[in-house]
Amino acid sequence: MADFLAMGGYAEFVWSAFGVWFACVIFNIVSARRRMRASIERATVAAARQRHRATRKMRQRHDT
């Protein structure tokens, strides 16, 4: 195990390269998730606003 971790003397280079790679993989998953959530939130707000406008228009028509 210690042999494996030592990577034949190249430990710092091999492990930091793999570390950066996996950090990038995780970062991409997290940021794609976050992007999706933000867009869903915006769409929900837009849909609510749209419906609000529609009901108000209907009410105005009803009043007149």
């Binding site: 999706m36 867009s39 869903i40 769409a43 849909a47 749209q50």
Partner: peptide, 26 residues
């Protein structure tokens, strides 16, 4: 695919199918 879905949502905010999809949850 995930990021394009988000882009599509941003571009189609005012279209009918988005309102059908997200109107109820609001």
């Amino acid at each position: 695919l995930s990021r394009v879905r988000a882009e599509v949502l941003d571009r189609e905010q005012n279209s009918r199918w988005i309102q059908d999809l997200f109107g109820d949850s609001a």
